[in-house]
Simulated scan of single mutants.
Amino acid sequence: MYALGIDIGGTKTAIGLVTTTGDVVGYDKLPTDQTIEPTKMIERIIVHVKTLLEKHRIDDNQLYGIGIGAPGPLDISHGMITYPPNLPRWRNVPVVKLMSAYFSVPIRLENDASCAAVAEHSFGASQHYTDSLYVTISTGIGAGIISKNTLISGGKGNAGDVGHMVIDPSFGECVCGQYGCFEHICSGTAISREASKLKGTSISTEEAFRLYEAQDKDMVPYLDTVIERMGMALVSLINSLDPEIVVIGGGVSQVGDTLFEPIRHYVKRYTLNKDAGDTPIVPAKLNQEAGIIGAAALVSPEI
């Protein structure tokens, strides 16, 4: 038996056929075309799903279901993608209903960060823990929360939307209208934006960290502050959620110990419960496949 995972993103949509051991045995992807109506994009996804299943000779009897991960906000009780900032045309899109017209298996929608949290919990960095927090720091920032081996979704599926937790209003206005959001300060998008302003030319997040490691006079004080703000956010999350482990994924996490060591040092110093200062803070193991593996795990009773 298999489960199918779909990870809908702002630039691409990934589709994976996943075994109960978390192995991706079939994979496809397509651009997320934001110039067309969401219903047309979903039709394209359906065609790719059918093609992938036919290629591997999988029928509905061999499929536990289809899990879908998507950026929030969502309304998972109605299977709807409601108002994601990075999918500006996707407003109250009944993705589960639209797909159910073509497939007879169970279909479940969850936040993409929650899917990644499930994947890491089932097969990755947090699989030996009952309570874990997954934080993705990439184009945006989000989180997935596992408590007592159970995904915490919240009322409509938006638990873990930590990117819009205010940590320092002095950094200015976020796209959400608040000042000083975690995402506005610490996401890859934010780092690239501010580094480019500092250097007067287009700078990627990766380039910004290379300059930081080379002791660039502009980048060192700037990224020292950003990394400290990441530490502040994680202290608040650890104080609030009391996880046994924190897993950090997303593109920014690829920086490695340059990022992780100062964050661990900050957390050790400032968590309210001093025992929590030793909470492991580790990089994700599954990276790019986490979204589809976690989405598939949502509908697989054996995971």
Rank of each mutant, 00 (worst) to 15 (best):
N273S: 10
A159K: 08
V118I: 14
V162R: 02
V96R: 01
Q178Y: 02
A70S: 15
A190I: 08
V135T: 11
L109E: 04
N61V: 03
I45E: 10
E206H: 07
V226R: 02
P221D: 10
G16W: 11
G22Y: 05
M41D: 13
I191K: 00
V246D: 06
Y2W: 08
A143P: 02
Y64I: 06
D168P: 13
T205R: 02
D59C: 02
V25C: 10
I58C: 12
P31I: 07
L30N: 11
R229V: 03
E206G: 00
S202A: 11
P71V: 04
T139Y: 03
I68D: 03
M1T: 14
D161C: 09
E244L: 03
P169T: 06
V162E: 01
D257T: 13
V247C: 10
Q215A: 13
P84D: 10
G160P: 07
F209G: 08
T32M: 06
R193K: 14
G249D: 05
T139W: 02
Q254I: 02
P169Y: 02
M1V: 14
T139G: 09
G144Q: 05
G180K: 08
R193A: 11
Q254G: 07
I36P: 09
T130R: 14
M80A: 08
E194M: 09
H164I: 07
S77D: 13
V226W: 02
A214Q: 15
G72I: 12
D59A: 03
F171Y: 15
D257H: 08
P94L: 05
I107W: 06
G177T: 12
C174G: 08
V49F: 01
D112S: 08
E194A: 01
V96S: 02
L53P: 04
N92L: 03
R108Q: 14
G277D: 05
G9R: 05
S192E: 15
T82M: 06
I141M: 04
C115R: 07
M230S: 07
I203C: 00
R269Q: 15
L259V: 13
K50C: 01
G177N: 11
L87S: 07
D60R: 01
G180V: 07
G22M: 12
L74N: 05
I146W: 00
T13Y: 03
R269M: 13
Y266Q: 09
M99N: 11
S147P: 01
